[in-house]
Amino acid sequence: MLGNALPITLGGIAVYLLPQRALYIPAHQLLVIADWHLGKIQHFRKNGIFIPQNTLANELQQLTALTAVYPTRHVLFLGDLFHSSWNPEWDMLLTYLAERTSLTFSLIIGNHDIIDFERNGSGHLALYDQWELDNQLIFTHQPMASVPEGFINVTGHVHPGYTIRAKGKQRYRLPCFYRERQTFILPAFGKYTGLHTVSPSEDAAIYLILGDEVVHHRPRFR
């Protein structure tokens, strides 16, 4: 039913790592998405940077497709949802969210969410600095400096990627989910984002996104 999603547990909670670069928690029908960076290209253009326009509709279609496959009640954005001050795409996004009447939406405000919510409105988005689930998971945009005892910090911001070496001296740089002690970092959901290559410590786990599959990878240490 869950396709190539990889089941793991975070704290005591069963979650699925989706190759579409999102996290799904079936018990709560919760979809978690980090670092979408919508509105970014419009933002650049407004500042005289002449990159071609993309279409917001294409971007939003990705979320529509995901919620069609995974039964979802609640979508939690882990920050950097909208990478711009107000531009018309913000209103289009709010309209899209409002039309999805069966879903609730929450946003943990990220450093690129520079929009003025007071003035421009946040529609159906509930805004948070952080958000907790079942006394086990604590969701933030940036990794917490110290995670409270007994919690796992689920977070974004980093855009983790990993360089993997294979036979014949081949190298691949791929997006990944990254876990180190109490911190669990999601890959960026947005198409137009970069990768930050992580160098894992010995107690880290890496979940590589290999096309339509998520694979648990244990780096070897010398």
Partner: peptide, 14 residues
């Protein structure tokens, strides 16, 4: 204009 524009709402400034 920042190239060929697709959307009416584009605000390009240069």
């Amino acid at each position: 204009q920042g190239g060929n524009t697709l959307h009416g709402y584009d605000e390009f400034h240069k």
